[in-house]
Simulated scan of single mutants.
Amino acid sequence: MLTFIKPGFYTSVQDQGRWKYRNKGIPTSGCMDDLSAQIANALVNNKAEDALLEITQIGPHMHFDTPAVIAFSGAQAEVKINGEKIELNKAYPITANTEVKVGYCQKGIRLYMAIKGGFQTPEHYGSRSWFEGVTQQSRCVAGDKLPYLTQANFLDKYGNVVVNAELFSDEIEVEPGPEFLLLGEEQREALVTQSFTIGNQNNRMGYQLEEVVKHNLPEILSSPVLPGTVQLTPSGKLIVLMKDSATSGGYPRILQLTELGCSKIAQKSTREQLHFKMKF
């Protein structure tokens, strides 16, 4: 059992989400930076869909009752096992009664901790991802306990990887959204030539960007949206929908982030800049 001595700023259990229930209005949820989560799971020989921890900005202090194998990938942060600093993107076996501390995220804002076998928390609608209204809680608090599969031995071979720094670049890959061609040529050009700044309103539901794209598009009938959909509001502000977003919306869907684009923007926070790169 893992026990949280300190939970960090926003630590939650996530996996690849619950995609089969969007027709019922249930958000996808799941890992914001799916690329880093998959790397962490691969390092401990897990399946891609196994549940792991998503650590945001300030990391937790944890106690492990029984042996395990863990790995961290994503944002750059200092991680210590029983006081000794370890490397990211590398698997480590730990013994019973081990403490792990994760510091501040120094580059990027989301770090993933995989544990061999995945966390054995309850499933809701086919996923272990935490989301308020679907699961009992949305983030960890001090004293929380998470079950995992004890590792009796460490005979398996584990590797380490070198992660491309492209994850932290300001270039976000996108494709045209359903209403993209309703924009004028000048507006379409502006979307891929100017820089945008992440505003104060950013969380697991969506990122609002500060700059304005002037337009005269009407609102549309409520239509399906996905994580990574970029909506254009009547005021001209852009909203990038993230993993906990609603499943439909009435603003024009002018862009759609690629999977890599979703992972890259998930590592950015308030006041950071980005620009969109069109992928046809």
Rank of each mutant, 00 (worst) to 15 (best):
D144V: 01
A190P: 03
M242V: 11
G250I: 11
Y125T: 00
T135E: 02
E211F: 12
R253E: 02
L238D: 09
H215Y: 10
L155H: 08
N216E: 13
G177Y: 05
K237M: 01
K214M: 07
N160W: 15
Y158W: 14
N153C: 09
S127E: 06
F131E: 02
S169K: 05
Q201K: 14
Q187T: 02
E185W: 00
E171S: 14
L182Q: 15
Q208H: 09
S248N: 07
Y112G: 00
G118V: 11
P218G: 02
K116W: 07
P122L: 05
V240P: 01
G199D: 13
Q194I: 12
K237T: 12
N160I: 00
D156H: 03
T233A: 09
F196M: 04
Y148T: 00
T247S: 09
F168Y: 15
E189W: 00
V134T: 10
E179R: 11
A142Q: 10
D144M: 10
V213S: 00
G117C: 08
F154A: 10
R128E: 02
G118D: 06
L226C: 08
L155R: 04
D170L: 03
S138I: 04
Y207H: 10
T150R: 13
Y148V: 01
V174Y: 07
G159P: 01
Y207Q: 08
P227D: 00
E166V: 08
Q137I: 11
D244K: 05
P122I: 01
L221I: 11
R204K: 10
Q194D: 08
Q201D: 15
L221V: 13
A142S: 14
M242A: 11
P147R: 03
Q137M: 09
L111D: 04
Y125D: 04
E175M: 13
D156F: 02
F131M: 12
V162M: 10
T150N: 09
Y251P: 05
Q201I: 13
Q137N: 12
R204F: 05
L232F: 10
L241A: 01
V192S: 09
T247F: 10
M205Y: 09
V163Y: 08
T229R: 10
V163C: 01
S222K: 02
